[in-house]
Amino acid sequence: MNNRLDGLFKPNKKILSIYFTAGYPRINDTATILRGLQKSNVDLVEIGMPFSDPLADGPTIQSSSTVALKNGMSTKILFEQLQNIRMDIHLPLIIMGYFNPILQYGVEKFCEECAQIGIDGLIIPDLPLQVYEQSYELYFEKYNLHNIFLITPQTSEGRIQKIDQKSKSFIYMVSSNSVTGSKNRVEDKVLSYFKRVKSQPITSPKLIGFGISNNQTYRTALKFADGVIIGSAFINFLDNNSIEDIGKFIKSIKE
């Protein structure tokens, strides 16, 4: 079985990836949101598994996670909702979640289930590279799942090289030293980090995430990377708009 992430990146193609929290705003919105995103010509989707203590997330994703958990979302229910999703969703799909729920589910069982559903990759922000290599890489390989690693403005050049070598797909470039959350403009300090990374010999494609929220930040980020990831701004949109209007949001980003 091919991994849909493998065919995603092409020269001169810019990727728009959207993150949403599964179980938010309502528990059964998962498939509807996925269809809305596919219809709006998004390139890639990250399905967030809500966690009680999301350390790397800002207020928007924190509160969407809290609501999703209150709605009753769990790993098991998410897998049930995704069971037949490949009948009509052809986008590459990534699951993003903190490590403890995955550990409790059983890492191998989790990977197996993802493969069976047709998930292409995982982002586990609090699973460090070294632990991944030592204990879990074998399951990712066995089930042909790509693990997506993060880099930040603090990541050393040497470590970026190491992460680049380990990456089977794209590198998630965290735009600034921060938890998730949307910002209106890209700061100068962040720009110089984008430039620095762009000048480095990195073979993996790069997607910039954290703080991308509108057409301006989207266009700036695209100058330095193969695409962007939008999370908090999309969740804020869902707070005030109906799921049918996802297309409008995507249009406002791409203009």
Partner: peptide, 19 residues
């Protein structure tokens, strides 16, 4: 399980949400 960056005993539900 994992809490605050450490693997240890912690109070959690079956789904791994911290209680």
């Amino acid at each position: 399980g994992i809490i605050h960056g450490s693997k240890t005993l912690l109070m959690q539900n079956a789904d791994g949400q911290i209680q």
